[in-house]
Computed example of a mutant assay.
Amino acid sequence: MSNTVEKDLVIIGAGPAGLSAAIYAQRALLDNVVLEQQSIGGQVILTSEVDNYPGVPHTDGFTLTDAMQRQAEDLGATIQLENVEKIERDEATGTFLVRTPEASYQTKTVIVSGGATARHAGFEGEERFGGHGVSYCATCDGMFYRGKRVFVIGGGNSAAEEALFLTKFADRVTMVVRKDHLRAQAAVAKQVEDNEKVDIRFNTKIASVDGGELMSSVTFEDTLTGRATTENFDEGSFGIFVFVGRVPASELLGDLVELDERGFIITNDRMETKTPGLFAAGDIRQKPLRQIITAASDGAIAATSASAYLGQPIEG
């Protein structure tokens, strides 16, 4: 049976939002713990190039979040690799019980900053060839496609940036975009359009893939006419990278939070959810921009709000 540990604050997720929250919680002298189920730093550690975090030019996700972790721990933060299995709230006392296989944490406040995972595109064969030709991480798998052809599904910033990254390895990168334009920021879109190794198929989606042990054919569908065409390749000569958005890790929270139509947590500008004492920060919440800097900002605000909720506001 797990032990029960009392805390002022439990932070769930150790990405930029959670690490920022830990830094601000330490400044407020809150007895807190950060719980992370996978890798400290979150999805950002897979990002090979970060050029838009102010004051830290030309870095990568691992280096940046490693510095955040060290800063939090230097201030006394406790970060533990534990998988949160359940979150309960005692309505009578207003306290939360956060359960992991190792312990149960009784706390007055919780910040949920679990981020989001890759959304699947939904084409036939996607699950079958997952990890065997279909990937969701260019940084992880790009090297396996040296000298080969890759298709990148998506038209947003992530898809465009990953397409550019894949040109380091692949002979040809084809972006498959459902609409008639890229949704990426203008500067990123221009880089894609100017890169001679990248071509774009607009008004197109991948309907299915097929093959033996590895993929050998792709069926494309025109999103305007519905017309399907199948192209055949040598087995294992190409890969498909999917970048069509993220799925927020909000399923544990149940009725404790209000979600938008995509499953992201709705908060106010103080990161407060509909449940008193429960805050959300980072990519898990509804917001117009998902970047490292906005996640860090969310974490700082959430910890400050939690401190105020506990009657210990941070000055300055």
Results as ranks from 00 to 15, higher is better:
T63F: 13
I87F: 07
R27L: 04
H58K: 13
P16Y: 07
E73F: 07
D90F: 03
V56M: 10
E73N: 10
D90H: 04
V56P: 05
P16M: 10
V44E: 03
G18L: 12
N32I: 02
P54D: 07
H58T: 06
L35H: 01
G13K: 03
E91F: 05
A28K: 00
L29I: 02
I45L: 11
R89P: 01
G55M: 09
Q69I: 09
A22V: 01
R89K: 15
S48D: 12
A21N: 04
V84D: 07
T95V: 08
V33N: 05
A21P: 02
L46Y: 14
D31T: 01
G41E: 10
A25N: 06
V33S: 04
L19R: 06
P57F: 12
V98C: 03
A17N: 10
R99Q: 12
A17H: 08
A72M: 14
P54R: 06
S39L: 12
L19G: 05
V50D: 06
F62R: 15
V56I: 14
I40T: 11
G61V: 09
L35K: 01
G15Y: 03
Q69P: 08
I87S: 03
A28D: 00
V84S: 04
I79S: 06
D74V: 05
L64G: 01
S39C: 04
Q69M: 14
